[in-house]
Design a protein around this nucleic acid. Structure first.
Lengths: 133, 133
DNA sequence: GTTGCATTTGCAACAATGTTGCAAATATAA
DNA sequence: TTATATTTGCAACATTGTTGCAAATGCAAC
């Protein structure tokens, strides 16, 4: 999977700035914040260009948002589907999309209906736990 | 429950700006975003003062954050405890803290441990559902 | 009530962040 | 290679948030 495939799949022009964003996300293999990406690309591109490219990728759902605590928002490639579980490691601060076939249901007041569920779990990932031992 | 009780309980000075924030939250009886509160109080107080007062209330956990999608963050009085479920109504855009005795557990990869869970459910609240009928 | 003191407030100046219009550059399809 | 719609970079601007500091305020002790 490279950026060209993505641009074809979404029928988007492969511009240098968009490509730089996608490439960085493909390379890092973990959700990144807009800032993390922006700071890397600030030398290469104009602020305006970055904002516009990033917004486009979000609009077309090439990337999806993961909302964490403390104003921190990360982005991952692909689009969210159905019930989505994200894991935030309090130690390494990394975020993961947890794939699960499990479907969770919640107790709600009478008459409430559910469209979408977002679950954020904070804890310690296996790698950090092993390091701590 | 009035603002004076809150200031006593948290051993915070009852300043005019802090009081205005608390009073607004008590009156509205639903989580509000920092913007919603700020805009209301902009005429009355300096921007700086508002930011500082708001930050203090958050620091002392007089209010707690509810992170929604699209950069939208709301705040509710009181502090979050244990597993917390928030409900966002896609129709009226209001947020509620759902009180539940239920404890939910999630399937995670091997070795992962959980500290805290944040659950955001988006759907239609009972009131909006009834209106739609 | 008055006083004293730590805290908070408002202001000015500034820094950072994001937005808009527009001309030049670029991507893609013909 | 050309034509055309889209994207880019720039300048100017708007908004948002931060800092230092003097004046005002809250509150506790008297």
């Amino acid at each position: 999977m490279n950026s060209s495939d993505i641009f074809k799949a979404f029928k988007l022009k492969k511009t240098t700035c968009r490509k730089a964003i996608i490439d960085m996300m493909l390379k890092e293999q973990k959700p990144l914040s807009e800032h993390e990406i922006k700071n890397q690309l600030m030398n290469e591109f104009d602020r305006t260009t970055f904002y516009r490219s990033f917004k486009t990728l979000e609009q077309y759902k090439v990337i999806h948002k993961i909302v964490l605590d403390k104003q921190e928002v990360k982005y991952a490639l692909g689009h969210r589907q159905g019930q989505h579980v994200h894991f935030f490691c309090n130690s390494c601060q990394n975020v993961q999309c947890i794939e699960t076939t499990q479907s969770y249901s919640f107790v709600l007041p009478k008459g409430y209906t559910v469209d979408e569920t977002e679950i954020l779990i904070k804890g310690i990932c296996n790698q950090c736990r092993l390091v701590a031992l």
